[in-house]
Nucleic acid binder design. Structure first.
Length: 399
RNA sequence: GCUGGGAUGGCGGAGUGGUCAAACGUAUCAGACUGUAAAUCUGACGCCCUAACGGGCUACCUAGGUUCGAAUCCUAGUCCCAGCACCA
């Protein structure tokens, strides 16, 4: 299995028109131009994005011309993919540009924007916002309404009586036109982007008279199909602090181990198959999960930080040894009068309101130096070195 | 333009005069279990007072009104959606 095999199979969902055709081109030694686009509609990239980034990096390392496209033009239209509702509001180009700054910073943890064969950054607003009406009509003529509304999501929306805004409806045309504007040979994207990418294939064929390959990457999901990394409110961000990142990955279900190894690491297929066997035959998967987590933390930070995060996790969570753990600290305010425990928790930021604090106390979630405080009486006087723990994740150490 | 439908807690979504701080689901939080988990089970889930029983306040798009009492009825407004028509 050589580099090209890996490139074409590992972490790849589908290749259009087919794998053989692309392989032939790559084997010929030709360096291709490819891109993946990202609409900066938020500020945070999550671990799921890393799948695509890694693929870009592989192409980059093999000497191909990789373009990292910021969708400050397509973002204006609002990608309807996977959305069961039309967007309530659309973003301005300025907002998108602002978000893009942090996107690039985060993506830079995996792909290279500098050094040898750096990835080129482009903004599709540069050409999309300059399209004339005539251009748009010419693009539109390549598609039929039937093709567009065929998408499952639109069918579902129509059935449910939900709206399909014409603005988002145009999205595939814009994304498709990017391929024409940049004259790329290949577009990479998550499998949810298939429709949009195929629109680009059509346009490239009709407008440039050439073949554009499309490669989709699988969405990062555990074996039950549950998406990893972006469960509402609990995003595993690429720039999370190593300790947090480590803990978040560890708290994924065991089902996530194999998919994560496959899509996010360079561990060989044989090794993955081997560890899958071990787990299936009853071995405690924790060891492998720790290895996985270590690798990922290292990829996004450094070996040293990954080590530290791992040690921290071991002392804090596995041994429950809070005294030696690296906890957030708070200076004791000596002038402060003793107060009710519940209000104390609010003051130090461990509870959001007094009601919240009382609930936590009642639920035996508050520990002071390892001792559960069950009563909302006067709070103990904090002494240096005291540790308060609220629930499993919130700690505070007094200094 | 016409005709209908709608706006409820983080989200989805019940509720059509009192028993509604609002079913149910989901998310979140806590506890149990465990391998740190995940899954599962249990509980909590507006704010404030109380040791507790309990009480107060604020909330169902906005502003008024009817009523002893309104998420629920009326009036006006704002926003959203669907269908139809227009396209001479």
């Amino acid at each position: 299995m050589d580099n090209i095999d890996v490139l074409l199979t590992r972490g790849v969902d589908t290749i259009y028109p087919n794998r053989e055709a692309l392989e032939k081109v790559l084997r010929s030694g030709k360096k291709i131009t490819l891109y993946q686009g990202f609409d900066p509609t938020g500020t945070q990239l999550h671990i799921g994005h890393a799948v695509g980034f890694r693929k870009l990096r592989q192409f980059q390392n093999l000497g191909h011309h990789v373009i990292f496209l910021i969708g400050d033009g397509t973002g204006l239209a609002g990608d309807p993919s996977g959305k069961m509702k039309a967007r309530g509001r659309f973003m301005s180009r300025q907002e998108l540009r602002d978000n893009a700054v942090s996107y690039l910073k985060q993506a830079g943890k995996i792909v290279r924007f500098e050094g040898e064969n750096p990835i080129e950054i482009r903004y599709n607003g540069d050409w999309l916002t300059k399209l004339t009406l005539e251009d748009i009509l010419n693009i539109a003529q390549n598609f039929t309404v039937q093709q567009m509304i065929e998408r499952d999501m639109y069918q579902a929306r129509m059935k449910a009586g939900d709206s399909i805004n014409l603005r988002e409806f145009l999205y595939p045309l814009l994304q498709g036109y990017d391929s024409v504007a940049m004259k790329v040979d290949l577009e990479l994207g998550g499998s949810d982007q298939m429709f949009n990418m195929l629109a680009g294939r059509t346009l490239v064929k009709n407008m440039l008279g050439k073949e554009k390959f499309v490669m989709t990457t699988p969405l990062l999901a555990d074996s039950k199909g549950v998406k990893i990394g972006k469960t509402e409110g609990n995003v595993i961000g690429l720039t999370d602090a190593p300790n947090d990142f480590y803990a978040k990955i560890m708290s994924l279900g065991d089902d996530a181990i194999v998919p994560c190894f496959t899509l996010l690491t360079d561990v060989s297929n044989e090794d993955i198959a081997h560890l899958k066997n071990l787990i299936d035959s009853g071995e405690n998967p924790m060891k492998h999960k720790k290895k996985l987590t270590f690798e990922l933390t290292k990829m996004l930070n450094s070996e040293e930080e990954a080590k530290k995060a791992q040690e921290e996790f071991e002392t804090r969570s596995q041994k429950g040894d809070l005294a030696h753990a690296d906890l957030p600290t708070l200076k004791i305010d000596v002038s402060k009068k003793p107060e009710q425990l519940s209000s104390f928790l609010v003051t130090v930021g461990l509870a959001t309101s007094k009601s919240d604090a009382k609930r936590l106390i009642e639920q035996k979630a508050v520990e002071w130096n390892g001792e559960v405080l069950e009563k909302d009486s006067l709070s103990p006087k904090p002494a240096s070195g005291d540790i308060i723990k609220v629930g499993k994740k919130k700690y505070l150490k007094f200094v």
